[in-house]
Every structure is written in structure tokens, then in C-alpha cells.
Design a protein around this nucleic acid. Structure first.
Lengths: 226, 226
DNA sequence: AATTTATATTTTGCATGCAATATTAGGAGA
DNA sequence: TCTCCTAATATTGCATGCAAAATATAAATT
């Protein structure tokens, strides 16, 4: 029997992957607060998986830097302090610059247009003052640039660091001024990418990230006080 | 009773860490060949641990990119092909450049002297024609530069990528000419670091890594044929 | 009341067991 | 001999059990 026409392919992802993703989301969204303990019994009940895949997820998230394992004393959500934040953004800046350079060289016109489309969608959210929607597309644009650089290792590395930074995004509370500036910067980045101006995109991305760092750092103490 | 004077602190590392490190070594040293399957039963016997910590190690090494998990079909040692090699080195190049820059700014004189000491030890191995010893100190120097950059996230990221590349080091079979050039490059890197010449060290590290890539790529097909 | 000591409870680390899936071996038919 | 099918075997994914460690609770001492 030929079942190749079957429309829906049922894929069962391994439970440890599912658990890893769910936990990562919980941490990134701040629903598992930095410093809090990850109780195995509780989480197994909450996620509906047994301890084995859950503990595997802990190990993965630990290598990703999102949680810390204390031998015999469980796992805690790792702190995202100012030091860590600025260190991570510095690294991402270097990767971003490389990605921009490679994207200028390697991205197809269609891919650049895809980024342009995302850019306009982002502008729409900005116009409406919808910060969450803006962040989503902002995020997507940066990831696409890195993706279209055509270096899988770069993409993975960037994604991992970016994942940890998402927590900061959820904290950030942009001033209208900073927000407008960021949008202008994105305009320029897109222009540089379109004209495949390597030098310019490097500089723009570096600036953009430095600004991002500044505003993230500004938002951090507020959150930590809360 | 004050036991703070006790000389030997007995630390029992978790088995999954031990297993992870052991497996990583086996892969890096090429004793577990790329593409080969990681049989759980076999490895538990070999490492003397049960399946649980072993499987946790698999997950960690998978996120590090050293192994690949095939659902329901176990884990295999991930391939280190030319694409992956050059992609990784490109990323490491960007990180290296950043590290050099930061090290110029942040490293203490004592730290630079520590690097200088390693440099001379490396020269000794070069003079004797001891490739393994040379690699060891070469490695150590680059890691120290990244470490003394004073950015922990950068250090971790670099270390992870570097770990995966160690496999290539074991394959590499430097020509005397390339070897001599590499040593000269190291001389210059050290000089730039000592004079804290940011621009120069960026350029030097970029060049150095490009050369490294070329020689690694040259060595790769030979190994794959064998 | 505060500090210490002893005991009970919880939690973790790891090993093992069981069902589901994949692999291998064997044999029937072409 | 080769291909296909079937049964046996091995391997994986996950849940659970048990001992060791840590934490919480209670009692005892100062």
C-alpha cells in the first residue's frame, strides 16, 4: 500500500526536547524567575513527563547557560545580571557584524526581500505602538540576517545567545525616543544590506547593538528591584 | 572543629559530567570516529556508569554539536566536514578578533607576561619539532587571550567551538613551512598584545585564523580518505 | 528565646525495568 | 541468487525504585 499521499505525518518529538523547549520558554518569559529553584516533582506534574526527560532537559539548558546545576541540590534559573547581559551582547555584536558581512555577500535578492517584508511588518507594529509585535519582528529580522549569512554554526551560536537574551527583551520598556531611533537604525541596516555595503552594515549593526545594550542595561535594575 | 586546614577536599563530580568529559575526549581524540554509532550498552560497560548519566551526556554533547541524536535510533558522532570546519573557524575568527581587542584593553601586564611565558614554552616545542606539545601550548595561548579579554560569555562560547575543532587539530599535519609561519604570526600577535595595539591584533588574529583554516582544510580530505 | 542536636521528610543521583521501536537473522517464494 | 516477508533479538525512550544527600521539623539544652 502506498501511503505517501497521506497528508498528516504524525511526528512524536522526544519528550526531553519537548520539555527543554517548554522550560526554555518558561524561563525566557520570566515565568520561572531567575534564581528560583526548579523542583523536579513539581515540574514533572506540570509538564506531564517523568523525571528522566526532565532532568535531561536540565542538562541541556545548563549547557545553554539558562540554568545552573547545583550538585545534589537541584537546578536554579541562572541570573541575568548586568555583567552577563553586556558580555553576551558584546559577543552577539561580533557575530552580528560577521553575519551582516556574510549576508551582504551570500544572501539572494529573494532573501533580502523577505527581510524587507519583515521590516515593513515591523514598521506597522511600530506605527501602532505595539511593542510586543515590534519585538517579535525585530527579532525575526536579526535572526534572518544571521540565517541568510549562510553559516550554520554562526546561526546556531547566535540563536543560543539570543535565546538567553530574550529574557531581557521581556523586561525592556523602550522609551518612545529610543524606539524611534531603533526603527531608523533598522531602516539603514536594510538599506546597507540591499546595496550590499559590507563596511556600512558592520558599522550599523555594531551601533545598533551598542544602543540595544544601553537600553537593556537601563531596564535591568528596574526589573531587579521589582 | 576547624577543618579549614584540611588539605584534600574530596569532591565527587556528578557521573553525567564525568561521562560527558570522557566521551568528549574520546570524540576529540578521534577514538570515536565521526559517523559511528554510540552504543549505550557498550559505553555503559566501558565507562562504568548506567544508562541514565550516559544518556544525559549524549544530550549535552548534542547541544555542543559533537554528537547527533537520531530519535529512536541512538546517537552518532557528528561529522566534521569541510563546510562545518570553515564555518566554525569563521565564527571563531570573529570571536578571536573581539577577544584580542578586549584583551588589549583589559588584560593586566601580569596576564600578558603569562601569555608570553606560554609563548616561549611553545617556541621550545617548535624548536624540538614536537608537534603535539606545540599544539598544546598554541591552544593554551589562544584560550588565555580569550580568557584575559575578561568576558565570560565570550570565553565559554569560544571554548565550546574550540572543543569541536580539536578534532581537526588531531588530524592536522602541518608542513614545516606552514608551521614556521604560524610561529612567526604568534610572535607578532604577542607583540601587538604587549603594545596593546588593538587594530593590529585584530588584523593579525584574523590572518592567523584564515591560515589555520586553509591548513585544516588541506588536512581534512587526507583524513577522510583514511 | 536562641542555639544545638536529633529525627523525619523531601529531594536528588543513579540504576533498573518495561514497553515501543528498530535492527538483524532466517526462510519462503520468485 | 535475490527479494520479500516474518520472527527473533537488540536497542531505545521513558518511568519508576532505591539509596544517599539535603532540607525541614521537632525536641533538648543552654
Amino acid at each position: 500500500m502506498d501511503i505517501s499521499q497521506e497528508p498528516v505525518l504524525i511526528i512524536r518529538r522526544p519528550l526531553h526536547e519537548e520539555a527543554t523547549d517548554r522550560l526554555r520558554d518558561l524561563i525566557v518569559q520570566g515565568r520561572l524567575v531567575a534564581g528560583s529553584r526548579l523542583n523536579e516533582r513539581l515540574l514533572t506534574a506540570q509538564l506531564g513527563v517523568s523525571r528522566t526527560p526532565l532532568r535531561e532537559a536540565f542538562k541541556v539548558l545548563a549547557t545553554e547557560g539558562l540554568v545552573e546545576l547545583l550538585p545534589n541540590r537541584g537546578a536554579i534559573v541562572s541570573q541575568l545580571d548586568a555583567t552577563r547581559l553586556s558580555e553576551t551582547l558584546a559577543v552577539m555584536g561580533a557575530l552580528d557584524a560577521l553575519a551582516g558581512e556574510l549576508a551582504c555577500a551570500n544572501a539572494t535578492d529573494a532573501q533580502i526581500n523577505e527581510i524587507r517584508a519583515l521590516h515593513y511588518e515591523m514598521l506597522a507594529y511600530h506605527a501602532r505602538g505595539d511593542l510586543a509585535g515590534y519585538f517579535k519582528f525585530n527579532q525575526a529580522i536579526h535572526l534572518k540576517i544571521v540565517k541568510y549569512a549562510g553559516n550554520a554554526v554562526l546561526y546556531n551560536t547566535y540563536r543560543q545567545l539570543n535565546g538567553a537574551m530574550q529574557r531581557a527583551r521581556y523586561m525592556a520598556n523602550l522609551s518612545q525616543e529610543r524606539w524611534d531611533t531603533a526603527v531608523r537604525e533598522h531602516d539603514e541596516i536594510l538599506a546597507a544590506l540591499s546595496s550590499r555595503d559590507v563596511k556600512r552594515i558592520r558599522a550599523l549593526l555594531a551601533d545598533h547593538l551598542a544602543h540595544k545594550l544601553a537600553s537593556a542595561l537601563a531596564a535591568l535594575p528596574a526589573r531587579q528591584a521589582a
